[in-house]
Design a protein around this nucleic acid. Sequence first.
DNA 1: TCTGGGGTCCTAGGACCC
DNA 2: TCTGGGGTCCTAGGACCC
Length: 434
Amino acid sequence: MSAGPADQIFALVDVNNMYVSCERAFNPKLRGRPVVVLSNNDGCAVARSNEVKALGVKMGAPWFEMKDLVRQHGIIGLSSNYTLYGDMSNRIMTILRTYSPNVEVYSIDESFLNLAGMSSLWESPSAMGQDIRAKILQWTTLPVCVGIGSSKTLAKLANHVGKKVPLFDGVCDFTTMSAARERWLLERIAVGEVWGVGRRIGAALEGMGITTVQALKDTEPRDMRARFGVVMERTCNELRGLSCLALEEIAPPRQEIVSSRSFGELVTSVDELAEAVTLYVARAGEKLRGQHSVCGAIHIFIQTNPFRRQDEQYSNGVSIPFAEPTADNRELTGAALRGLRRIYRPGFRYKKAGVMLMDLSPDKGGQGTLFESGRPRGESQKFMAVFDALNKRYGKDTLQLASAGTSNRWAMRAGNRTPKYTTSWQELPTVRAK
DNA sequence: TCTGGGGTCCTAGGACCC
DNA sequence: TCTGGGGTCCTAGGACCC
C-alpha cells in the first residue's frame, strides 16, 4: 500500500491531572494527598488529583459543596497559577520535539505527534511511548500517558485506555494490537468517551442502541452523516482507522478573542464595571496585537448571578463595529465603554462582565492571508495602490494577485493561505495597472 | 435589457473541545 | 455566603451580486 492517510501513525501525549501535577512538582508534600486546583475566585474545581476523583468529585464542582469532603478527607484546595502551568507545558513541548519534528500543541496539557517514518528508530511505538513517559517524568516530574493510533481519534482513545487500564502502564498502541484485542477493548468503552461525542450526541446515540465505541465503529459513516452531519461522519471514519484530521503544526491566528471574569463580589455601579471592562479590553487587545490582527467589531456583555434565584436577573450584550478595523487600545476601550453605557441598567447586582474582539483580520503586518479585495472595474486604482505597497514590502514571491470564483472579484494574498470565503482561486498570469 | 443560476457574505444557533 | 474561562466548526437561511 502506498503512503497515504491509511498509513498515518499519531501519538497523543497528555499530562495526568495537569494542574495538580504541576503544583506537586513544586510542593512534594502534596503527593499522595487529595488535591484540587480551583478556578478564579476559588469558585470551582478545574483540576482534581486521582484521590479526589475517587471521592466522586466532578470536574467543575463548586468548592463550597465539597465542604464535607474537605473535612472528612482533608482535601487541599489551591488557587490556580496559569503562569506556572504554561511554563511547564512549554518544557514538555520542547521535550516532545526531540521525538518528532511534527508536533501539534493541542492544548496546555496535550500534544499530537506524527510518527510516520519514525518507526525505524524504535523497537516499537510502545517502546517510544515508554521512553517519552520516562523522560518527561525525569525532567519535569510530570506523569504523562501516551496513546498511539492510525488517526487522531484513535490516538485519543488509546490514550484513554493507557490511562485507565493499569496493564498498559500508561502507553497504549492500537497500531500493533490484534484486531480481536482492540475489539474486546472498544466493546467495553462507553461511546461518550469518543472525541467529538459530547453529551447531546452521546444521548442520541444511546437512544439508538449505540452505547459502546465498537458499536459506533460498526455503523455506516454515511448513515451517521445523514443523522448527525459531516463531523460525525468524520469521527466514524477516524474510528475505522481512516485518518481525516491532519496534524496542525502551526496554530492559526485566533478568529475571536474573549476576555471575561466573574467578580469575587457583586458589583452594582457602572464605574466598577467600567474599570473591569477597561482591564479586559487591555488584555484582549494585547493578544490581538500579539497575533498581528485588527478587529472589526467589539462585543461587550454583562450579567447578574443566575444562581441567586432571589435576585432579579438581567443580562445583555452589544456589538459595536468600527469604521476601520483597529487594534488601538484607546479606540477599543472607547467603544467598549460606549457599549457598556448602552447596556448598563442601575439597580442590578452584576456578577460577570466581558469583552469579545470579533471580525478579526490580519493587519498590514501580514499573517499571509487576504489583504484587500474589490472588483477589477472602478476600484482598480485603489486596489493597485495597495498591491504596489504590499509588493514593495513583501516582494513578488510572497504576494499574488488572484481572481476568486466566477464573480470577477479580485483579491490579494501573501503566502499560501486562502481567504475564508473563497472557494476557488485562479491565479492571473499578469498584473496590469491601469 | 432580460433572466437564472452560481457565487459571496453574514447571522444565529447548536454542538463540541480543553 | 460561595457555582470558570476560554475556543472551534457546521448548518441553514437570506440578502445581494453578476
